[in-house]
Design a protein around this nucleic acid. Structure first.
Lengths: 212, 212
DNA sequence: ACCTGAACACCGTTCAAGT
DNA sequence: ACCTGAACACCGTTCAAGT
């Protein structure tokens, strides 16, 4: 039952299937879903729990920056396989049981590194900004027309000398949006760039906190 | 017509009203919405355009960090008045016409500061991470039970000595989630914290870029 | 206890018929 | 050209009736 929901999520995303489809996938009537699991929200919770339980957690003894880089980059790889999960994870946080151990782990790594009382805030910044970025990629994947329209709009402004900032942005899109594969590579690079920036920012805080 | 959609968005959020409600608000039948504006997506686009057009753009002569801090913090204030707008803005980007001038402005400020070819990437990091954070606040505002459930779950782990990281997170929530007002203040502080971290990160990049 | 099948109260959208 | 009102094809959810 939950397995079927996970497979459907893998194929169509968490918002891409209906209770009726889920019931049909297990050759049953919609009402049996309610009888055994509950309403749609309950099914979604089960999927979240299962996906988070499958997220790899880096080894304890890594330096904080390496631990977090690995967790976020590897985490993206698994979250992206289940569209829509990242967004709900960002909004629900440790409501998903499997998220409790991850939160504990992540914050412990930060405290050991010297972040002290700021560890919880740092945790929330790192997790929510990364998960939300994955959620953004999910939305683009679910509706490719969103980005092709952006590409089309920007293409029209590539040579505008009165708007040099916009022209620069347009030429960036022109370089990366040619084919499917370079776009995918660009997304992966950009996520890494965003994660590295978040970690840079946090490093700055650590330098200040440990200096005094 | 679009005015009515904006008012409904202000009250119920962009996903909180239906075509039928919009039609009723202007004392008409659903079909007249299609006749004059188009489908729901077209109405949403009109709302986005209107909200973005109302976003304050800081003065040209500000230092890059001040310009961006102001833009993002003031931008949050206006976006939060229209729930659901921030999320769509993050996914659609400069597809919304009023966003073109803002993108040009923001990137120009970065290029003048010395970010060079990296300006477009920095722009995308700053805008998407901030807008997505607002989108997260929007979701929490639309469904307060999300956070109260998180608070309840964490409350149960406040004194767990086997999970010190989780206990630290729980005590943070315990301090901030008492009443409505301190929660609102915490959200505002956290957004500022996140923006400051993003700007710190970008400052690090600028130091590297201008050093060589 | 569990499944069946219909029903309810909604959606967004379309369309022939009116004026 | 614009409005009317019904209809279509969907939702999530509920529930009496069956086994």
């Amino acid at each position: 039952m939950v397995d079927a929901a996970i497979r459907l999520t893998e194929e169509h995303g968490l918002d891409g299937w209906t209770i009726r489809q889920l019931a049909a996938a297990i050759r049953a009537w919609p009402a049996v879903v309610y009888h055994h699991v509950g309403d749609r929200e309950a099914v979604v919770d089960a999927v979240l729990q299962s996906v988070v339980a499958g997220m790899p957690v880096p080894a304890d003894d890594l330096p904080w920056r390496d631990w977090w880089h690995r967790f976020l980059v590897d985490g993206r790889a698994t979250l992206r396989r289940y569209r829509g999960v990242a967004r709900r994870l960002a909004t629900r946080g440790p409501t998903v049981p499997a998220m409790l151990a991850i939160a504990d782990h992540g914050i412990r790594v930060l405290r050991r590194a010297g972040f002290g009382a700021e560890s919880s805030d740092v945790y929330q910044v790192l997790v929510s900004s990364s998960f939300l970025m994955v959620a953004l990629e999910d939305e683009w994947a679910a509706d490719p027309s969103l980005r092709s329209r952006t590409a089309a709009v920007l293409a029209a402004h590539r040579d505008r000398e009165d708007m040099p900032g916009l022209a620069a942005l347009a030429s960036l899109w022109h370089r990366t949006c040619n084919d499917q594969e370079t776009l995918r590579a660009r997304d992966e690079w950009f996520f890494g760039y965003a994660v590295d920036r978040a970690l840079d920012a946090v490093q700055v805080r650590l330098d200040i906190l440990t200096a005094k």
